[in-house]
Write a protein that binds this DNA or RNA. Structure first.
Lengths: 344, 344
DNA sequence: TTGTACGCGTTATCAT
DNA sequence: ATGATAACGCGTACAA
């Protein structure tokens, strides 16, 4: 278990001062080319490994950011991480993944850890509970400390002055409803993955607007809510699917919810799209491979990750402009899970 | 942008020495209860945030580990991360995600970053290329420096004395082949996601053994290889599926490959399982939702993550015993993508 | 119980 | 171009 080589070790071996070695290693001017070469090659040979802790104690730079995600089991975040990484890696930045599991306390714990760790910035998809609670104060504190925060996917309504990159959720769902009506559907339900969340509430807004605008029928029983997509919303869906008064089409609001809808339909022996049309939300490759392939609202997930990260690195680099609020458009991928009831 | 509060700031306000504050804050003995309380509450009020960089410069502890994964787009890693996190979080550890995208250089870059960063340990699923190249020397160097490494999912054959947690890959595939023969299949093909990888080579071994043992027919054309599951293996599969001489069943070796098989079958108009039986590998929830639901070899992915992490934390805590080589069993989930050709 | 003094590895400032 | 020195924030051996 060899001790780690330090700058001073190198300096000693070359009988020069540590500061010269430091300058040479970090590519700063003030060292003759000849000496620099000698230092670099010796460092290489001695297996010198810079010590980020020491460096960051001095420079406040850790080349690390924090990534707050809501639930690591949601495949949504694979694409987010992919986007994040694609801009981080070339810049030499790493990221710490924090899955808060839709739990305010965990979010707070992680945020504190990230501060202690000295991350240079935070990418967050913050939680808002049904009762409207959130960690807004903590986020503000972080910002006050000079650590840039960019919200992606979700944001906290009452917490302003933060950069954000989110989907145009209202339009996404409203467009979905329009699509369904063009296909002849007049009785449409929706499954709200989890009340309180920014995304879900926005999507719900979009749904209500569309319903009103299109003068479509909907009923309270057709609005399925569920804290955890996998427990009670499944039962509610079964009940709905088994009732006489079920809608002809149902809209999902995220991928786990789409799964639940498909499971419930199967459990009730309903054929898609013959017995019920399903409009998914989010797009896994599997959507294409199902029978029938699932028509779905696709978010530009990687883009969200990429743009949020770019914004964050900008702030880290010292950009001072006022916060950007970026909204991206969703895309409706038409496949075969929606039946055409009647041509327009 | 308020400057960060330090231990000395607190000490000054209370007119005591920084060391006392340090002791109080880190719960060490040697401070009167009364004073400790005062310190703690003031620290709270002043928004004191410990500085991990400074602390770790002294203690060598960063409460952070590195997680090397092969490709962040593979849903396999959602479960791995979930398992990892479930044991890390309660212990106050964070992790840095490094997706090497099946690229040796990226792996090396990340490993160096992790060393510089001062991670206390590394969880790695290392790459081995078709030509047998790998970063074994680098891993050994890391171990020599006293940073524990645990291999999970994959390992490097020639690099011994490392803890590892992998699947019993040979048995997994062999059992799959047995299952297929019990279902009456005598012509079986396999899709090797990427030659060189420990997992894939082991799975291939299991296949070859089973073929020999069972005296089953197989042909070189039935062994599909592909570097990237999504490019040429798709074409090869199409060709195979369109030929007269196709096998009656095909075995996948990871989830992305299963996707490709399903796509190719669809593109060729083959019905599963009527025209071709498919035995998947790995198990997404979606496998259950497909039509037909996919029969598959399921790895205990979360368990792999959990056990590997437990091992790693053990090493970090100083456990000195000789390396554990843990092999977990796969489970065959029978659904409906395999046709019964003939009852035994 | 509390305080003093030093060092962890690095960089920045100032001097040479 | 190079070197000496201080400082980053914290923990700890030792002294009081």
């Amino acid at each position: 278990m060899g001790k780690k080589v330090t700058i001073s070790d190198i300096a000693r071996r070359l009988d020069i001062s540590p500061s010269t070695v430091s300058r040479a290693l970090s590519g700063k001017p003030g060292v003759s080319d000849e000496l620099r070469k000698k230092i670099l090659s010796l460092a290489e040979k001695m297996d010198y490994i810079p010590n980020v802790a020491a460096k960051s104690l001095k420079t406040q730079k850790t080349k690390t950011i924090g990534l707050i995600i809501s639930d690591i089991r949601n495949p949504f975040f694979l694409d987010v991480m992919h986007g994040v990484e694609s801009v981080l890696f070339p810049r030499g930045y790493k990221f710490i993944v924090c899955s808060i599991n839709e739990n305010l306390e965990r979010e707070a714990v992680y945020l504190n850890w990230l501060m202690e760790h000295g991350v240079e910035g935070i990418l967050a998809s913050p939680l808002t509970t049904v009762s409207g609670k959130h960690n807004g104060r903590l986020y503000k504190k972080i910002a006050r400390l000079g650590i840039p925060v960019v919200f992606y996917d979700r944001l906290i309504q009452s917490v302003e002055n933060f950069d954000s990159v989110v989907l145009d959720n209202e339009t996404a769902i409203a467009d979905g409803a329009f699509y369904l009506t063009r296909k002849g559907h007049k009785k449409i339900g929706i499954c709200l993955a989890r009340r309180g969340l920014y995304t879900i509430e926005e999507r719900y807004k979009g749904f209500k607007k569309a319903v009103e605008l299109l003068r479509i029928e909907t009923k309270p029983e057709w609005i399925i809510e569920g804290k955890h997509p996998l427990d009670n919303s499944f039962e509610k869906l079964r009940k709905l699917f088994n009732s006489e008064e079920r809608p002809t089409a149902i809209i999902s609001t995220n991928h786990p919810m789409t799964r639940t809808i498909l499971k419930a339909a199967r459990a009730c022996g309903l054929k898609i799209p013959e017995d019920i049309s399903v409009l998914g939300f989010d797009d896994l490759i599997e959507n294409e491979l199902m029978s029938p392939p699932i028509t779905t609202i696709r978010q530009p997930v990687m883009e969200i990750g990429r743009i949020a990260t770019t914004l964050l690195l900008g702030r880290i680099d010292g950009e001072k402009g006022k916060p950007s609020s970026i909204k991206l458009k969703a895309e409706l991928i038409e496949r075969e899970s929606v039946k055409t009831l009647m041509l327009p």
